[in-house]
Design a protein around this nucleic acid. Sequence first.
RNA 1: CGGGGCGUAGCGCAGUCCGGUUAGCGUACCUGGUUUGGGACCAGGUGGUCGCAGGUUCGAAUCCUGCCGCCCCGACCA
Length: 488
Amino acid sequence: MAKEITPRSENYSQWYLDIVKKAGLADNSAVRGCMVIKPYGYAIWEKMRDQLDKMFKETGHVNAYFPLFIPKSFLSKEAEHVEGFAKECAVVTHHRLMNDPNGNGVVVDPDAKLEEELIVRPTSETIIWHTYKDWIKSYRDLPLLINQWANVVRWEMRTRPFLRTAEFLWQEGHTAHATAEEAMEEAALIHEVYTRFAEDFMAMPVIKGAKSANERFAGALETYTIEALMQDGKALQAGTSHFLGQNFAKAFDVTFLNQQNTEEYVWATSWGVSTRLVGGLIMTHSDDEGLVLPPKLAPTQVVIVPIPKPEPEIMIAADRIADDLKAKGISVLIDTDDKNRPGFKFAEYEMKGVPVRIGLGKRDLENNQCEVARRDTKTKEFYKLDNIGAAVADLLDDIQNNLLQRAKDFRSEHTTAVDNMKDFVDVLDNKGGFVLAHWDGSPETEQKIKEETKATIRCIPLDAVEEEGTCIYSGKKSNKKVIFARAY
RNA sequence: CGGGGCGUAGCGCAGUCCGGUUAGCGUACCUGGUUUGGGACCAGGUGGUCGCAGGUUCGAAUCCUGCCGCCCCGACCA
């Protein structure tokens, strides 16, 4: 065994780090808290990005790009917003280096101090709304539906590859609308796009809900979230869509003339998902043998391994199979390496999460067949070479569906309703997962529960059933259960 | 910012307590050969300023002082 992965049962956190490293997704970098996303990891992000980008465009959005740097004064214009981000900002103070007079390489040139310091964006609301002020004059300029793909920096104390890094890649949508209703619809629309993406492409079931006041985005009136459940029973906030009301319009004085020629502040939304999704993908499907990828996001969907090695006769047959698969829109890699033996390659491709592996040897050719192994169940079957393209296409669909179903089953098994604090703590400590409980709606109660149990309200589900009940902490009246969990 | 751990070959480590040949092992890599349907084997080889800077000593990976970095756990957060 050349490359061992720590079993999940032994140390889940180490297992996650092993997968990231050994599947070749990312490396630690020379910069604390920042990672190098390696080609294979980046390929997964590209698949996500391309699909999301397509979905944004289909819903009428266009891409643009705003600066990395934000003047410090911008950040302080929206009080809650600055409070939310001030503690984790990187600040640019100088614009030039010079040779150290003492001969120790380069040092910051003290004469090159910036008049106004620049903040490396932790998110772009402020600079975008500063810009929107110039772009929006009339109701005819609305709605303004813009997205940007960018990197942002949040100086986190504790980081983990993909799940939380000091610098990360994401998309941030920033829209402006004439009415509150329209902005709320936009926030809901994106919420729905994120849900569809998570379930249909990542095969990661999510709960759609609203954040409590404590967990809301800094500066938002309402934050919608999709919450996923990881295999270790912890929740992952996978995407958020915010209704910002007129907060940023007022902070940056963005107004428009409506059809009655009266001036109004515009209504705003913002929304984003990040490279954190890659972490969620890993922790939703992967196992002790390595990464497991849903076919729709796998950089390589099928790998063909010649057995025992790439000999001409086998390679010709492999090419023919690859052509059949490609004709069905399937991405295929033919392994042409003649150094390693098949067993080694099998383990490697399993580590990398390739959904389907086709083994092809002389014995198979004689029988007009190939050996097809699926990564999700680790089962193997012989397929006839006739019509292999269609058969594998069906198999990939089956794998995609199976992964979603498996994740849904896991979530159902790890979603527990409780009526009192004792059961609440018991479930958190011994079972994990989502815990449904009545809550009195007050930030104070939520805070107390968090302090005592480390569980937070992940969301107030949009489809929560109305029912009479009493808050598990305060005993006060409540009309629906909300979802608690310990979270990443 | 607290608590723990670690820095020796690309990777994983031993050696450090108790200073002493040419710094070692596994793996990876290169050569040659034998193998080949689930992580092959044999033989030969390449590769190191022992994290950095001082100090002690005839002699430092090893002892002393200072510094730097990284990882894990926690508080904070997407």
